[in-house]
Amino acid sequence: MKLIISGATGFVAKEVIRQSLSRSEITSVVALARKPIAIPEKLADGADPSKLRSVVVKDYDHYSEEVKKEFAGASACIWTVAITPSKSKMYDFEEVKRICQTCTLAGFNAICESGVSKPFRFLYMSGATTERDQTKTPRFLPQYSLMRGDTENKVLALASGLDGVEACAAKPGFITAPGEILKSIAATMIQLTAGVPSISVVDLAKVMLDQVVNGFEKEPLTPEDLARIAKKLNSS
């Protein structure tokens, strides 16, 4: 299968790319970013770096016909482009919304217009605190959380109107990294205070790849779902 990974220079996307090059089911990896992507370091034995295709866009809200040709025939996309909650206060909200919502929908539309394989699976990486019910007022960054939840709604609505296209939101809590002690401590504190389980970037990438390759188990994929599926995959 041909897999598109957006935001390919990001923390999570780089791990998704690294693992995808080792999966035999994935024959081609389109790494979409605003600058060229290099072969990841520490590839597993048997990984095939020749599967990686770096595709550069000026921005994620505009796609040339040349770029759309690179999408053609894809079977899935893992969309990671976003401004995180911790960084959202550094930007004007309209810019945050453009990156998180406008670019997501533009990318999804461009991919579907390119002539994808069916079924096509679009996995949108969102977050644990997002709120789809626009009548509610979340406690945590309400404007941001509602906007991200609204983006989930719009992604699902777009998919529902397209034949052979499936969409799902992955909603991880705090994402940890191997060897980063401070992140592990922060994850523990968040779980104790907010009750939201964390997940390592390695496990998150593994789960997301499993879901686009084998089909979405459910929608959305909550932090608890992601942890459960990761545990199952790691024990198999």
Rank of each mutant, 00 (worst) to 15 (best):
I78A: 06
F108C: 07
A110R: 03
C103N: 14
M90E: 12
Q101G: 10
I111T: 07
C100I: 04
E94S: 00
W79I: 02
K69T: 09
V96P: 00
C100M: 06
A76H: 00
E70L: 14
G107Y: 02
G73L: 11
S117R: 05
E113C: 12
D92R: 12
F93Y: 08
T102M: 09
K69L: 14
K89R: 13
S114T: 09
C103E: 07
E70P: 03
E94G: 13
A82S: 15
T102V: 09
W79D: 03
W79Y: 15
F108Y: 09
K68E: 10
K97Y: 10
I111Y: 05
V67D: 05
V81Q: 04
I78Y: 10
D92K: 13
A82I: 01
V116H: 06
D92I: 11
Y91D: 02
E94M: 15
E94Y: 11
A110D: 06
T80F: 11
I99P: 01
C77Q: 04
Y91R: 01
I111E: 03
S117E: 09
C103R: 03
V81R: 03
A76R: 00
S75G: 15
N109E: 15
S86L: 12
E95M: 15
C112N: 12
G73P: 05
G115D: 10
T80C: 09
N109S: 12
R98Y: 05
K87T: 09
V96K: 02
S88P: 03
V67K: 04
G115M: 12
G73C: 06
W79M: 06
C112H: 12
A110W: 02
K89L: 08
P85W: 00
E66V: 15
A82K: 01
V81W: 09
R98C: 04
G107I: 02
K68Y: 14
C77G: 06
E94T: 14
I83E: 03
A76C: 12
F108S: 09
T84Y: 10
N109K: 11
T104M: 05
Q101Y: 09
M90I: 15
E95Q: 11
K97E: 12
D92G: 09
I83F: 07
K68P: 10
R98D: 04
I83D: 01
S86Q: 08
M90C: 13
C77M: 05
T84I: 14
R98P: 00
S86F: 14
S75R: 00
S114V: 08
A106C: 13
E66R: 11
A72Y: 11
S117C: 09
G115K: 08
I78K: 01
F93A: 09
T104I: 05
A72P: 08
E94A: 09
L105G: 07
E66H: 13
C112T: 15
C112I: 14
K69Y: 09
G107Q: 01
S114P: 07
A76I: 04
K87V: 13
A74W: 07
Q101V: 06
F108K: 06
V96D: 01
A110S: 07
T104D: 01
A74L: 10
F71Q: 06
F93P: 06
V116S: 08
S75P: 03
W79P: 01
K87R: 13
G73K: 03
K89M: 08
C103K: 01
C77Y: 02
G73V: 11
T80R: 01
E94L: 13
